[in-house]
Simulated scan of single mutants.
Amino acid sequence: MKTEFYTLGTFEFPADAVVIKGKLEAEGIPVFLRDEATINSDPLISAALGGVKLQVYSSDRERAKEIFDDIRSYATDRLGNPVVCPNCKAAKSEIYYTRSNVFYKLFPFFEPRKYQCMQCNFITRPAR
């Protein structure tokens, strides 16, 4: 039987993922942290690997997403204010990388920062 996983979120630092993992496991949801050991051994390659991926079984997706949405923090601008979606005005955005070409796949830290609204999935670039 093939088991499918759903990536609930990605984190630059393993410690951030471990906090969410603890909450989900306390609620009875098994959690897997992909690339955690690699990034713990060399934190400088986190951006190149796409961070630590917090994964749950696909069958637990909806329940895990509800719990995660209740406790997670969303993207903020340089002043600490929540990034507001220009499309739906929700303050629930996360950093989004397209890694659309080979250069950005090899050097993801050069890609311009974008945000994806978690409510309407609109992708935007911050004002400079």
Rank of each mutant, 00 (worst) to 15 (best):
P30W: 03
R72W: 04
K65D: 02
G80A: 12
K23C: 01
V84I: 12
T10K: 15
I39L: 09
P82C: 09
F68C: 07
Y6E: 02
Y104Q: 09
N101R: 09
Y6G: 07
N40F: 07
P126H: 01
Y97K: 13
K2I: 06
C85W: 04
K114R: 15
L54Q: 07
V19Y: 12
R78G: 15
S41V: 02
P82R: 13
P112Q: 05
L8T: 09
I123S: 00
E66A: 14
A26C: 06
I39M: 06
P43K: 15
G28M: 07
T98E: 09
I67S: 13
A47H: 11
D70L: 12
P112A: 06
I95F: 02
I45F: 09
G9Y: 06
A91F: 04
P82Q: 09
Y74W: 14
L33W: 11
E27H: 15
L106C: 01
C117F: 01
C120A: 08
I67R: 10
V83L: 04
Y57R: 11
E36I: 01
Y74G: 08
D69V: 10
A48S: 08
K105S: 02
E62L: 04
R128W: 00
A127W: 00
F11A: 05
N121L: 04
D77H: 08
C117I: 04
R128A: 04
A26Q: 14
C88S: 11
I95C: 09
A15L: 08
F5I: 05
F32G: 00
S100D: 13
D70Y: 14
I95E: 11
P43I: 13
Y57I: 11
T3W: 05
Y96G: 11
I29L: 12
L24C: 12
V56K: 05
